Simulated scan of single mutants.
Amino acid sequence: MNNNAQLVTCDDDGIAERPELEGFFSLRSTGLFWCNAEVLQSDEALEKLVFLIAKKPKCLINHVRRIYYCFQKNLNDQLFAAIVDFLVILNQQGQAISWRVVLGAKSRLTPEQFQELKGYLKDDCTDINRLTGNQYSVFSKGLVGINKMIQQIEKEEKTNDPLIIALDHIQYSQLDEAKEVLEEGILIEPERLDLRQELFDLYKLTGDSNRFHQMLAKLTRLGIIMTDDWNQLNNYFKGQNNNG
């Protein structure tokens, strides 16, 4: 453990009494916060952060970096939008960090903006659509913004689909890797017939009786009833072994 490493800290006791405190987001070394210390000086830094957030909404470190950047650069409207997007993604979770951010940024917010954020955090039953945001918001423009966020998250989940990953492996003739992905996917989601069919086709195409029997044994132990084509392939492989 590096005992010389500096921590990103927040003076909780002084926030409420000194909302004008300029150094709330200040760090002694921005290199501890940014992958590249020069990023903060780049004119395209904010644009890149917004792009990354839109692509991966749940990556909270990029939200915090965006808030920090806007605060340091005195981009007050963009700061409000960044905080709103952060709260939308948290969706009433992470109350401690939410309050820190809102109170720490109070000196850069209009009274109306601060009251909107404060009211949202104080009311656990508040509809997330109350966060109006502004022209710089990514996720907060009413239902349109929320739906955009949901669609992006669903898109991310879709790219992690074992069938899509396996098909990518097959495209590059990485058949063993494709089998492994499908086998793991089926054990997690045994009800997915599309995964079973694709794996069946691979076993049949490659004549991989060893992996077929290993997988069939695992599925049988789980009490999963296999389709007739799996049973037929099982008999086929057994016949080959007997003839051999």
Rank of each mutant, 00 (worst) to 15 (best):
D77Y: 12
D77Q: 13
D77G: 14
Q78Y: 13
L79D: 00
L79V: 03
L79R: 01
F80D: 00
F80Y: 15
A81L: 01
A81Y: 06
A81V: 06
A82R: 03
A82Y: 03
I83L: 01
I83D: 04
V84N: 11
F86H: 06
F86G: 02
V88Y: 12
L90D: 06
N91P: 02
N91H: 13
N91R: 12
Q92S: 08
Q92A: 09
Q92Y: 12
Q92K: 15
Q93F: 11
Q93M: 14
Q93S: 15
G94N: 14
G94A: 13
A96Y: 13
A96K: 13
I97P: 05
I97A: 08
W99A: 07
R100C: 11
R100D: 07
V101Q: 01
V102C: 07
V102I: 12
L103W: 12
L103Q: 11
L103Y: 13
G104W: 03
K106C: 09
S107K: 09
S107C: 11
S107H: 14
L109V: 01
L109W: 04
T110W: 08
T110V: 06
T110C: 03
P111T: 08
E112W: 01
E112N: 04
Q113R: 06
F114E: 03
F114W: 08
K118C: 14
K118Y: 13
K118A: 09
G119D: 07
